[in-house]
Amino acid sequence: MLLQVNHLQKIFQTRFSKEKTIALQDVSFSVENGEYIAIMGESGSGKTTLLNTLATLDKPTSGSVILNGQDVTKIKENKLAEFRRTHLGFIFQDFNLLDTLSVRDNIFLPLVLGREKVRVMEQRLEALAPKLNITDLLNKQPFELSGGQKQRVAIARALITEPELVLADEPTAALDFKNSEGLLSLLEEVNDTGQTILMVTHSAIAASHAKRVLFIKDGRIFHQLYRVHRETADFMQEVSMTMTNLLGTEVR
């Protein structure tokens, strides 16, 4: 087992008001090596909060997150950045590429921060770039790229550290339909090579590319679906239905 999430709870309390927001309550699930999981829920259901907790960007109020036998919620503040760099890969909704760096250097960034040798960085990129179809983009600046290209670069940056777990927060939200499709199949391919991916989304289309979908509402996980060997389109129907029926909301 790669990841084990136990009874996670997150309560937000703003400094000025006494009002509490329970963003996560008693969330438990586990992830096997090589899985591709989508977490689905409507806006405000706690998806980003969950992902941030897994990503060690946020500390839970209670509960634990065990990655490869290590409780990430117990890692000391000054070791967190290094932990993220070595064990996790991130793909963000708005790409989060640095304008100041070229595409190549953006991909190198986590390795540079980890003081990796230049030779190793170049070897890894050489292997990775053709898979993501970004070989021609390497010498450009981020602002010269389209949204889809940017997200592919972001994936390259997430993968180059060879992380145990890739976390993605609505990676297709800023893309048009065609680019979304391309990106989702790309993530599937990446997953086929054995990479574990955990993706948060509110789009049924995006979720249907995953092998398993967890549904979250009001901070609780209350349902999950397995794709097994179905086509994406079939699976999407079921995901969509589940959302409509169980959550009482209309989704695309």
Partner: peptide, 15 residues
């Protein structure tokens, strides 16, 4: 924004 991104990617606060 740059420093936010850097921190997410793995640059510690001290760095």
């Amino acid at each position: 924004r740059s420093f936010e991104i850097l921190q997410e990617v793995g640059l510690s606060g001290a760095e």
